[in-house]
Structure formats: structure tokens, C-alpha cells
Design a protein around this nucleic acid. Structure first.
Lengths: 199, 199
DNA sequence: TCGAGACGAGACGGTTGCGTTTCGTATCTA
DNA sequence: TAGATACGAAACGCAACCGTCTCGTCTCGA
């Protein structure tokens, strides 16, 4: 059965080269953004020949598509800590820790901003960078609703915007310095309580 | 008295060229962002000679600095409408209307995102694009506090982050399409009320 | 062992933007 | 009127990157 896979003749493509190319592309995008990414620099960083890249991807766009898709961030929904504050803090902690290493946190708003006016790239980044993270927050919000911590009549997507928006906003305004954005939990608590006086 | 201004010899610099250069730089940045801005394209769009640009600005950074500074957006604090919803809606309306023309709305988060990792440019954009607009929102928040619409113990800057953050976040995620970001007032009302059930 | 195809290295011509310089012309002061 | 400086236009050499192509080497199946 599985013998049906007839291998094409000649030397097979190198899995090491595959990995090196995608890894280099991701690192360079995290460091300098999408516009600054060039095939030449990917070649330099990955150590492969230029033809090896062009054999796989016909353009920068194809390469970026593969790299972002390859970045299969299966971000797990954190364990139920019993409160939205706990869940949110756990996720924020996880995201911030991972981001310090890869710069993936600033990657999201930066890349999206860079491709304003390029709908296909924007859709790609949204699908593979934004949506997976939003899905996690959606899970947290739904648990909070089930607990009664969040009103049932609040739209879930709006709740996500309110929780995440100020976070991203501060990150951009702070120049990508994750240290100076204050406490996520303080932010959340104020969002929860609202701005108006409680009767 | 005023005759003391001894004019230097030779032909004076052209005010028309000054204006054309800065205007072209701003339009190009609004259209394609900071990284995509080149002296060559500024020359082409402004119709001046290249030397005329270099006589004034020694580098792209100097030119951008002058252009952003020249963009002296004295955004007025709107009239007191009697409620924070009214004030906020009026400002949002004003900003969105002006942005449709110049693209200045997306300009702010886009430019800031692009220069993450370039502290001097980031500081420049923050000072001339973000701060003036934040100042307006601060005025609105302070009026709301005086009216009793917002709790006294809420930090003013945090209130601004909560009101503006989701707005900017949606703008980036929508790909700069100002149409698809929903109602600013809906957003504000939910921020005001908070997410938790009211007793 | 032989042909096919991938490999790293790098040369190639073409394009874009850089920053400088040189035109001939225009506009100021003295 | 003469000297100084700015003007638009365009050419210069330089650098980066593009996408293609040609080496000589290697790793597979037949």
C-alpha cells in the first residue's frame, strides 16, 4: 500500500535546508520586519545556496507564507485557575516569556501594520498570528461567562478587544519594550470593573 | 529695528520648495509607511531637484523629523457636549473624518510599529503624533471625572489606555480599513460599564 | 556504475536608491 | 552690473538586492 509512493529520481531535497530557510526567515522578520526581509539575507543567514531557496519558493511572498504557516503556534488554553484574573495572568505570563525569546509579541502588530494595503499578506498574518492567540482569550472569556464573572449580554469579541486592545496599544507605544507596559492584571481589573462609579 | 536682520547674499531659499518637500514626504509616508520612504520618491513627487532636498536635510531621518514636526496638528479639545459619550463621539468623528482625507489615523500606529527598535524615531512619532491626541482624550476624561461619570480613583492614563487601546487595536487588525471597526460609542459604553455583572 | 536531481558557491546583468557633482538659469545684495 | 547662492535637471560611481545560470560535488534509484 504505502509502497505506492514512488520516489522521484535523483537526490531528494534536504530537510535541513528546509528548516534552515524557514528559521532564518522567521528570525529576520522578528528582528527587522517584513519589508526588510530579503532573499539575499535569508540565504546569508541560513547558509544555503540561493538556488536552493528559489527551488522551493518563487518569491518572497511564498517564502513568508510558508514561514508563518510553519510557525505552528499551538498555544494551549491554560488550565482553569478558577478566576479570569488567574487565567489571564497565566496566559500573559506565558506569552510575555515566550516573546522575550523570539520577539513574537511585537511581531504581531508590527507585521500587520507593515502590510496595510496588502490584503493577502494581511489575511495571512491575521490567520496565523492573531487568530490563534485570540482563540485562547476567547476560551478564557467563555469560562468567565460560565462562572458569572462576565455579564452574559456582553459580546464575546468585544470583551476580547477590551482585554487585549490596551495591552497591544501599550506595547506599541512603549516601543516594543515589554518591561514598561505595566501590570496586565491591573489593566484587566479596571476593564472588569468599568470606569463608572458603582452604585 | 527690524532692519537688523541682515539677509545673507545670493538667492534665498524657496518657500514653495520647502512646502512641496514636506508635503510630499508626509503623503508618501501616509501611503506606504516610513520604511518605504525614499529621497528619490520625495524628489519625484515634489518636483524639486535632489540637491534642493539635500541642501535642507542631510538624511531621510532629518527630513522625516521636519515633516512630522511641520505636521502641527493642533487638535482642539471639543466643546463640552455634557457627557463623555458625546465628547468622545465628537472627537472620534473629527479624527475619522480628517483621517479619511490624509490617512493620518492609520499613520499613528503604523509609523510607531515600524520604528520599534529605533528609539529616536519612536520618540519623535510619539511626541508629535500620539501625545497631541492623547492630550485631547485626557481633557475628555478629566471633564468626565468632574461630572462624576468616571470614578475618581481610576488612574487617568489607564482610563485613556482603555478607551483608546481597543480602538487602535481594531484599526490595526482591520488592515487600516476605518469602515470595519465598529462603533466607537459601543466600545466606550462597554468600557464604562465594565464586564462584571452590576449588582 | 550511471543518470537525475539537489547541494553550496558564486558570477551575471538589471534595477533601485544612495549621496555628490556639474550643468545653465534665476534671484537676491551691494 | 557683479558676485553669491538657490533653482531644476541630470549624470556620476557605489551599494544592495533581484532572479537566472553555471560550476563541481553529493546522494539517491535503477
Amino acid at each position: 500500500m504505502s509502497d505506492v509512493e514512488t520516489r522521484p529520481p535523483g537526490r531528494p531535497r534536504s530537510a535541513e535546508a528546509d528548516e534552515a530557510i524557514l528559521q532564518a526567515a522567521l528570525e529576520l522578520m522578528a528582528a527587522d520586519g517584513y519589508r526588510a526581509l530579503t532573499i539575499e539575507r535569508v540565504r546569508e543567514r541560513s547558509g544555503v545556496g540561493k538556488a536552493t531557496i528559489y527551488r522551493r519558493y518563487g518569491s518572497k511572498e511564498e517564502l513568508v507564507r510558508a514561514a508563518i504557516t510553519h510557525l505552528n503556534s499551538d498555544i494551549p488554553l491554560p488550565e482553569d485557575t478558577g478566576s479570569i484574573q488567574g487565567d489571564f495572568a497565566a496566559t500573559a505570563q506565558l506569552v510575555l516569556a515566550g516573546a522575550a525569546k523570539t520577539g513574537a509579541l511585537t511581531l504581531m502588530p508590527r507585521l500587520l501594520s507593515e502590510v496595510v494595503g496588502e490584503p493577502q499578506m494581511h489575511a495571512l498574518f491575521y490567520e496565523h498570528l492573531v487568530e490563534p492567540r485570540r482563540r485562547v482569550v476567547r476560551g478564557i472569556v467563555e469560562r468567565a461567562k460560565a462562572r458569572g464573572e462576565i455579564r452574559q449580554d456582553v459580546d464575546t469579541d468585544m470583551a476580547i478587544d477590551l482585554m487585549v486592545g490596551p495591552f497591544i496599544y501599550r506595547l506599541i507605544m512603549a516601543g516594543g519594550d515589554a518591561a514598561g507596559i505595566g501590570s496586565p492584571v491591573d489593566l484587566l481589573n479596571t476593564v472588569m470593573a468599568g470606569l463608572t462609579p458603582r452604585a
